[in-house]
Design a protein around this nucleic acid. Sequence first.
RNA 1: GCCGCCUUAGCUCAGUCGGCUAGAGCGACGCACUCGUAAUGCGUAGGUCGACGGUUCGAUUCCGUCAGGCGGCUCCA
Length: 671
Amino acid sequence: MSAPRNPVVADPVVVAAGTTAADAVAAAGLPMTGRSAVVVVRDPRGQLRDLDWTPEQETAVEPVGIDTPDGLAVLRHSTAHVLAQAVQDLFPEAKLGIGPPIENGFYYDFAVDQPFQPADLTKLEKRMQEIIKSGQRFRRRRFRDRDEARGELAAEPFKLELIELKGDGLDSSQVMEVGGGELTSYDNLAADTDKVCWSDLCRGPHLPNTRLIGAFKLMRSAAAYWRGSEKNPQLQRVYGTAWPTRDELKAYLRLLEEAARRDHRKLGADLDLFSFPDEVGSGLPVFHPKGGVLKRTMEDYVRARHVEEGFDYVGTPHISREGLFHTSGHLPYYADGMFPPMQFEGADYYLKAMNCPMHNLIYRSRGRSYRELPMRLFEFGSVYRYEKSGVIHGLTRVRGFTQDDSHSYCTKEQAPAEIKHLLAFVLGLLQDFGITDFFLELSTRDETKPDKFVGSAEDWATATAVLEQCARDTGLELVPDPGGAAFYGPKISVQAKDAIGRTWQMSTIQYDFNQPAGFGLEYQAADGSRQQPIMIHCAKFGSIERFIGVLTEHYAGAFPAWLAPVQVVGIPIRTEHTEYLDGFVAALRAAGVRAQVDAGDDRMQKKIRTAQQQKIPFMVIAGDDDVAAGTVSFRYRDGSQRNGVPAAEAVNHVLDVVNSRANQGPSAAEG
RNA sequence: GCCGCCUUAGCUCAGUCGGCUAGAGCGACGCACUCGUAAUGCGUAGGUCGACGGUUCGAUUCCGUCAGGCGGCUCCA
């Protein structure tokens, strides 16, 4: 589980009236340079202040180090300013957009005549290095009023727009330019002459000096819509990362390399799991035999667990006439996400983007009694969504995928218990696959766009409240996601963190009162009246394809033994030992283990290397000694060995590990 | 969908400032070797240089369109 962020609160220091925060920090003997330098302070109202902030009366403030989350954000924000200064030095025509800190770094948007080239980034880095070394100071300056700001920023059309928009629906976590009750600018002053080198509309705060930027790197440039809307012009965004020290930058770059090494798109090809043939089309994966083992093993396990949890497995077609999707609300509200229709026999048929309409028809196929509820229908439904070409990404964003989708039909009163049941079920299922670190997100409708969501505000409020309560009851961290709901109802999603800390949206649980109404679903209550059920949509992994991608990255391709496409490879020391291993492997296969003998004419060292690269959990080696003694020798994926294990014991050992569905190992270090 | 970059053998990549038979390593295949825990040696095959148009005496190379990929934006399971 994610630990809630609980920043260490430093002992406060007292800033005397009319003196700077820096004076107090220095007097307290706190570091002003180096990897733990204090770079800003937090005032009693919680607001971060520059070190040259001078309160009018004595104030106790909390020193904030550059190595804290807030301090890192200040460092990165200041680095963004240095980037912008460098850009305007080298490209004087560039107009400034916004430049906030982000996780691990920062970006700054610019309007330029020509998009930046990789060589431009190198030049910009060089110029930034010069600025940083020159030791410019950041100085806050308050504008008297908007007119003064407008006058000074006359040549910066985007900044002018921000001035006019100030405080008017801007996301303050992103737009650092304006905020609080005043309009301010930050001047960069040359170290020796105090000459103003560059200024930027900004609410701050900033580092006292560019020298505190220990290490940075420009990562890439890309286009981004001004203020995040595709109706607006695109600016050129430059991304960078910044750290207090070179070592931290290096560690971060190593993490990125590790992520690249785990990339499921690369591992999928290396391990022969799946591919994306151009001939089929973008975003449409095909699973090779080894990927097929993964997919089937996961599906078999998930199906069995569903049956244990009271779900009924059903099956529905991939296409339907359009009327069904009108009833469900998909064509009115979700048409952009669906492939265009096929026309034949005078009707339009659509590929399904969701399974719910089909399940509703199963529910409605006969009268239902309250005694049947909750009724839980589950299937691996193949759904197709028209994703814009630019968003397709490996297995995590595709156009055709398999949803492990269920719909629980229940009474309003049963809903909370059913949601809790589903939450516990999905969290358990994720843990069974070794995903143990997650938090929840509550996606609600966007109040400003009621036309994008079906149903009344009251119903939405009820549904949201039920979901929120169930989510809170888990004790997991709950993050709000305003506007993220599906058109038919709010949802809880489970965000899972993988082995290197990246988060993925996995399970979703959605409370839907709209489709039961649209389909006229009913059940007969105990008092004989006809009532409308509510339905709860639940995808456990979200998409089997995405989950395979996430698991591949989580395990870096070294899947747990129970999931590994090939679980055991037999490696004879010499060709004449092949027959012995054939017998051993046959015993394993008879017990359902995916085992094979490498009978090629490579040397055994080469076969070990090959099996190692294929990340096979068990290598079983046999030579003269083993044949004579009726034993085999294990080499595990981690390089550890267990030699001379009697054959029968060895079979049981493999079976134990596989059947335990352990997500660690195997290794000689265990059992 | 938008912006930028990219596409040469199954994979990773050289190369052609427009010019005869486009190279390497790994992989595949063949032969020899029969070896105790991460690469034995030798040889063979494999490419209409993403597709289609245009410019040119001549295009894998230059230009355009399309497809696919990568990085972002927007969007999302």
